[in-house]
Amino acid sequence: MSRYFIKRLLQIIPLMLIISIFVFFFIHMIPGDPAKTLAGVEASVEEVEAIREEFGLNKPIIVQYFDYMKNLLHGDMGRSLKSNLPVTEMIASRMQYTLRLVFAGILWAPVLGIFIGVICAIYRGRALDHAGMLFAITGLSAPGFWLGLMGIEIFAVRLGWLPSAGLDTWKGYVLPSLVMGTGIMAVLARYSRSSMLETLREDYVRTARAKGQKEFIVMFSHAFKNSLIQVVTILGLQIGGLLSGSVITETIFSIPGMGRLLIDSIFYRDYPVIQGLLMIFALQYVLINLIVDMLYGVINPKIRYD
């Protein structure tokens, strides 16, 4: 187990290296001239050239890559072409907003999702089950940007109950967390239902039933407890998906998180920031996947790693 863990951890290094090469070279293929955009329309040719020099944009791309990697090893992701701030600092200041959103999403969605899933499993095949699953698949199919815009139109513009932008007060979290969480809620409802049903078929649950234990206790102390394990791992995977959800949520609700930073940086051809963000996104996702895999092994010893 621990040998496998170390092996997996070590595998991240070449993976991230490959990702860095992909990211770096692909990003420099993006059409558009950052120096020109930075300098603005009224700038002279000399001004543009000076900016290009300042950021090393005139060097061969291979040299630029090695410069970048060298600095990266020292924890330096370079400086934003746009704001001249260190990329690490920019990402750090944006990350809190994205994390807040992710948190706002996972605060309610898994609870509701698992609840629906369990209820559906208990009432399998009956009206409540169908209604619950229809609700879940509806949540899965509703585009986040559409929900967000409708939320703003109804609750902010028309009714004036909630703010339409920002995360300044608790009210500001309501609509974004709705957009962030709907998908997770739906996925978890579906998974917890099926994993509940699977566990209900297991021998120990049958035994418990046969022993005449109350149905309620069978459900919650045996079936639910065990299916929760599987559900938690799915939840972990969904957090990665939340990162992409945050791009849309941040755009709609004018929240200065990492997702909007990515969009803005693509717009400005702010290479160092795009690079840094994609690397961080990838690292987060890879680590989450690793943790989930590990967790899976810890709680389900039947799975062997080799």
Binding site: L15, I18, I19, F22, G240, G241, L243, S244, G245, V247, I248, L262, I263, I266, L278, F281, A282, Y285, V286, N289
Partner: peptide, 12 residues
């Protein structure tokens, strides 16, 4: 490598 990015981010 491709799985290292959430799908919409990869598409973006």
């Amino acid at each position: 490598v491709l799985f290292s990015f959430p799908d919409i981010l990869l598409a973006i």
